[in-house]
Simulated assay, not measured.
Amino acid sequence: MDDLVRIASGLVASALGAAALFMTVKIARQDYRALTLSPEGFRDTNIAREVVPWSAVTSMSVAPTYFRGRQQFLAIDLKVKDSAWSALTLTRSAKINKRHGGNMWVSRVGKERDFNAFFAMMRAYTKAHGGTVD
């Protein structure tokens, strides 16, 4: 019986250790989504690791999507100057968005009911720091 308890304890400890190691590596590699707003611009790790300056934003709108016949607001559709695109090291998804529509999509953060506040905040930052919004 003691051997069984020791084996079970070892398995649980190994599983917890593996999960902790996985999360440590993920955090160290910065392999998670982060959206940072500052007076200089915004940084969305889904787009690029560099900051996109507010002055490069030429328009902003809601990018509605439809899922099971229901409209959901998931992202903000940003048009930015070409010079801003060329200064960024784009992620795979940002390259696809650029190729398809030429715009950046900044995904919502939090719950869907908070999207309007998120959109208002992005518009306010853009207006306050030299960008252009519709």
Rank of each mutant, 00 (worst) to 15 (best):
M1S: 15
D3H: 07
D3Y: 02
L4G: 06
L4M: 06
L4F: 03
V5A: 05
I7L: 08
A8L: 09
A8K: 09
S9D: 08
S9G: 13
A15I: 04
A15P: 03
A15R: 03
L16R: 02
A18C: 06
A20E: 01
A20C: 02
V25S: 04
K26W: 10
A28K: 14
A28D: 03
A28I: 10
R29V: 09
Q30N: 15
Q30R: 14
Y32H: 10
A34C: 13
L35I: 14
T36Y: 08
T36V: 12
L37T: 07
G41E: 00
T45Q: 10
N46W: 03
N46A: 12
A48G: 13
A48F: 06
R49A: 11
A56L: 02
A56Y: 01
S59K: 14
M60N: 03
V62P: 13
A63I: 01
A63Q: 11
P64R: 13
T65P: 05
Y66T: 14
Y66N: 10
Y66D: 04
R68M: 14
R68C: 09
R68W: 14
R68L: 13
G69V: 06
G69F: 09
R70T: 13
R70E: 10
Q72H: 15
Q72I: 10
L74G: 09
A75W: 02
A75V: 10
K79F: 05
V80G: 02
A84I: 05
A84T: 07
W85G: 04
S86R: 12
S86D: 13
A87E: 06
T89H: 13
T89E: 15
T89G: 10
T91A: 03
R92W: 00
K95W: 00
N97C: 00
K98G: 00
G101H: 11
N103Y: 14
M104F: 12
M104K: 03
M104R: 05
S107A: 15
V109K: 07
V109Y: 04
G110L: 04
K111S: 12
R113M: 07
R113I: 09
F115Y: 12
F115I: 07
A117C: 01
F118S: 00
M121W: 00
R123Q: 13
Y125P: 01
T126V: 11
K127Q: 14
H129E: 03
G130L: 05
T132L: 06
D134Q: 15
D134H: 12
